[in-house]
Design a protein around this nucleic acid. Sequence first.
DNA 1: GTCATTTGACCCAT
DNA 2: ATGGGTCAAATGAC
Length: 336
Amino acid sequence: MENSADWEQENLINELTQGMELAKQLQIHLNVTTSPHDTRELLVHKILNSYDKALSMLKLNGETQPTAAAMGMAESPHSEDSDKDFKDHEHKHVSKKRKSMVRWTKQVQVCPGPGLEGCLDDGYNWRKYGQKDILGAKYPRGYYRCTHRNVQGCLATKQIQRSDEDPTLYEITYRGRHTCTLITAPSAAAALPDKQEQPNMSQQNYQQQSCEIQFNFQTELDSSTRDQSIPSLYLPCSVSNVMVKNYVDSASMVDNNFVGNLYHPLLVSPSTSAATQMGGFVGDWNQTVMASESEQLMEIVSAASATNSSTVGLDFPFGALDLFDPTFSFENPPFF
DNA sequence: GTCATTTGACCCAT
DNA sequence: ATGGGTCAAATGAC
């Protein structure tokens, strides 16, 4: 038993180390303007793979710990994915997987009227697979899964529940991380149109997504005040009128203890000017929007590889967050 | 013809 | 037994 744990830990360290090495390579490639785009993308892919493996190890490990249930894993262990393939061949495995799925919720307020669905669009391509009347809820709950599920095996799902009290308020629960290769940054998404749903996605939707989960990326060429050898992650939300509002824990965010530790929900509140750009959104946003930082970071890294950005960073109103700072940790982010 | 949505049935956890 | 989540056939839109 102990040997097994040691072995797992060793593998975990190996994966993380590999991820770091790959990130360093990517860093070098980002500083070389002549570096081929393919190479960067390959590195990003490897990094993501490496961290995915590490996450899987941690999640599976976390499930065996008694604290997991106490930390919010009492969540209904229902199917995250009931694809027949999985049911037939990996039923038990899927059940485990479901429990460890990352889950987070955000609330979106939209103006009533046409184009409402568009406002709920988050840039990913979802396919509705069910709708159900929920006990005690006035409105039915819609069930959606990633369009690329069959092709790329992306297990991300979401549920949309309209609020009883405020019909303009929608609670969107996301489960699972997108593993599809669709790059979701606005520009990238536009470059990868989905013939089925993309045409319905208006520009305002892209703006919405850029403020909620994905972020716009900008090139920061003037890095005279910054160590050029250390690309920092810049999240230009402070520039694009999105500010970090607060941090709260959420039961839905601690489906497993690892997620609870690593995934600090980021609460952002787009300011009025951003909402104005978003058209369909109510001008005064007071509701909170939570997202997985890890997912954001994955996307940031992905998008960084797709741009010529020499730096990628998280830029908060109170300063930039340097993810390559050795003192940085998700458990103790410097700003919360 | 293809693909998305709808909806009743089914499965599973509680 | 009940409710939430998913399946899959039927239907509709393009």
